[in-house]
Amino acid sequence: MTTISSVVVQTSAAPELGVADLPFALVGLWVLLLAVFVGFELITKVPPTLHTPLMSGANAISGITLVGALCCTGADYPFLGKALGVLAIALSTVNVVGGFLVTDRMLAMFQTKAKKDGRGPKA
């Protein structure tokens, strides 16, 4: 393993067993399972008004791949790996920055309206 996080695994577990990666996959599956339940619970009762901002906000969160992309430009990656990594950084940054900004733009419209209490249309 050449990822940075694997350094921990190799220093703490017995490397000669060759199964050092298995515990992460199992722990990861637990994390996945619980996070899926949390996700279902969080979204179930959202009013339709917020469906678009919610989707666009969630979409921005899925740009979390950016964190992974940043790791791919590490020194021990070959040129091709780095090139793919930089491309991934650029694309996921568009997703993250654009996603959060556009969600904020939508939600700002909802908010100004709530304050004005709907008096008078915009010019």
Binding site: S5, A25, A35, V36, G39, F40, L54, I64, V67
Partner: peptide, 18 residues
């Protein structure tokens, strides 16, 4: 899971479920 990064797993799962 590829990068052994819990944050990606959690964030991805939240979005996947929603």
């Amino acid at each position: 899971f590829v990068l052994e990064n819990n944050l990606l797993i959690v964030a991805g799962a939240l979005v996947g479920a929603s």
